[in-house]
Design a protein around this nucleic acid. Sequence first.
DNA 1: TTTGACATGTAAGCCGTTACATGATTTA
DNA 2: TAAATCATGTAACGGCTTACATGTCAAA
Lengths: 196, 196
Amino acid sequence: LDWYILDGMSHRPLPATAHVVLGLASIRPTTGHELAAFSERSIGNFFPIARSQIYLELERLCRLGLLEVTEIAQERRPTKRVYEITRSGGDELRRWLDETPLEPERTRNLFLVRVFFGDRVSPDRLERTLDEYEALARTQCDRLTAVVERLDGRPEAALRRATALFGVRHAQATLDWAAEIRPIVQAARSARSGPG
Amino acid sequence: LDWYILDGMSHRPLPATAHVVLGLASIRPTTGHELAAFSERSIGNFFPIARSQIYLELERLCRLGLLEVTEIAQERRPTKRVYEITRSGGDELRRWLDETPLEPERTRNLFLVRVFFGDRVSPDRLERTLDEYEALARTQCDRLTAVVERLDGRPEAALRRATALFGVRHAQATLDWAAEIRPIVQAARSARSGPG
DNA sequence: TTTGACATGTAAGCCGTTACATGATTTA
DNA sequence: TAAATCATGTAACGGCTTACATGTCAAA
């Protein structure tokens, strides 16, 4: 059942994912395949969407009249479905960006769960977990720093650059924090392996 | 159907949520109500769990023999169900902490989506969004700083303190980043409202 | 010859949230 | 008298992930 289409007042708001797909499709007419690839290397850094989900959302947005689809037959390839944003789609996107209040996000971090229960594993194991997380942060930091540098000096990309910079700063915060708490983890290790 | 109990090899691993509930219940025997409250103010800062989900997980962990339940009749209150971790529950918890590999977490941030699509709203609106996010970060920072200070000088709480410190450092990173990109947002505003 | 890009989907099913449902006791 | 605490759950449902399914073409 499609509540969204049966009821003009739309009690149940579209999920954020739908609006993000709408936003991506608003940049230029695009296929699901193409949109998935673009999503993955741009907004996917802070709002990943499964490929299969993208196809579902594109279809739903069509049913709602927020996107229009044009089938384009191709030689030697499956028929493309090119989605383009409609007037009402543009309205809905702007309305969503403008009116939806920001809520504090309660995001899950399994690494911190490991730290929380850190005394249930060996001190060595805990330190290895910290090493791993540090390595992930370093990789992330390098990757996003490259993105930031690529967008340097391109005024029209300033906001996209800002989102990448956010990731860089947070990765750096993780690295600083890891250095800060490492002594604690190491103290636990030497306490057990030391002269007792 | 309960795949977990029908198949000793347990193809489908228990979700992280179940393990976190198991971990919380391992601290001391507790009721669902009590565990939910404790979860909310401790691990909930980086791994929130809905209260209703906690009741479901406690039941499942019982069916799997990882927890044991004791019903305690009370005067003037509903019968309590006190859950206590079993030997095999302790084993499973340690196994999970020890063996489950850390994966890079792709967490969603709707604020960054707003920044990404920042040129679709008015410069004023974008700056207000930045203001809001900054305020949230400041609140978060203050709240977690208080937690860190409360745990200062308590060696047995060093790891819990570390998880709170992680939140503090990240909130600070957000505040620094906000200050860093504010000029960009303001430039967009003056560009439109300025002499043109 | 094999990998990767192009191209689109369906099926299954747990996870998790929100709302609902109930009721006594204590405190402000 | 209203709100907070204690205390336990069910119902409904969408969201999202994982796996499955299929096939061509170009490049290494």
